[in-house]
Nucleic acid binder design. Structure first.
Lengths: 133, 133
DNA sequence: TATATAATTAGCCAAACAACTAATTATATA
DNA sequence: TATATAATTAGTTGTTTGGCTAATTATATA
């Protein structure tokens, strides 16, 4: 039961569900992109990602200094999880917001993204703000 | 997202998963039977059941003093949840243990069960103990 | 080889959660 | 109508969890 419970606990958190949702939209995302999406510290994002990997829901690969995360296709029962989860995720405002934000994040190089996260205010992300305020 | 998250949180607890599992085996169980299965206080069982009902996974009906719980067939996506969960639950020792315990519980009248739970040691449950100790 | 950097781990704190006992509610019956 | 009883709600307590900052690890590069 513990593996099943581990998967359920891993998904039973808003931010981790958002990570999972993001990875149904983009094949692969690196830690700094997830950090940017969730608007939490890198440490927090890293811990959430570790929980999802430990549960067997995500896999990661390291390429030089970057670590990329993706859905673990080999996860036993992943198809059934997606059957249940996908139509639900598509239904929710926050996830749609995430998808839009992600598009913005992907339009920026990881280098600039990380520079930004360090507070070096060079190369600002072009925010798609409405100017009706 | 909150309804989806609510369902995931509801299932992401060992005792609640056991309740859910029990109800895949027995169409309908009353609160005192669940209490007996989990070996927790009636208040604790009641709270777990309330969480599952609130999440839309279980429904309940009251019949005189007894409250009966069952899987909520009308729960949106219940089939998909079961597709994922059933083969996993069947795999685990604790759930199989639960099924055996449940058989014992169902062999006793609810009246006797509750008497027992109140400490009135009349009409003992026939435990299927092996006598090799 | 010293420095910069992406990610993780360690250590801390506040909020959420699961358990308990006691009190309350709703129903049946003497 | 007073009493018993099944279930729930209220209130308390210890544990788990999710967030942070600081320290560490692994990799690239000046």
């Amino acid at each position: 039961m513990d593996k099943t419970l581990l998967k359920l606990k891993a998904l039973a958190d808003r931010n981790r569900l958002r990570i999972f949702g993001a990875l149904t939209q983009y094949e692969e995302l690196c830690a700094c992109q997830i950090t940017e999406l969730l608007q939490v510290s890198g440490a927090t994002a890293s811990r959430h990602l570790a929980i999802l990997v430990t549960a067997g829901l995500l896999k990661s690969r390291k390429e030089s200094r970057w670590v990329y995360f993706s859905l673990d296709e080999s996860c036993d029962g992943m198809d059934n999880i997606l059957d249940w989860l996908l139509p639900r995720l598509r239904q929710f405002d926050q996830i749609h917001g995430d998808f839009e934000v992600l598009d913005g994040i992907m339009a920026v190089s990881k280098e600039d993204l990380c520079r930004q996260q360090r507070g070096e205010a060079c190369c600002p992300v072009q925010k798609t703000e409405t100017t009706d305020g």
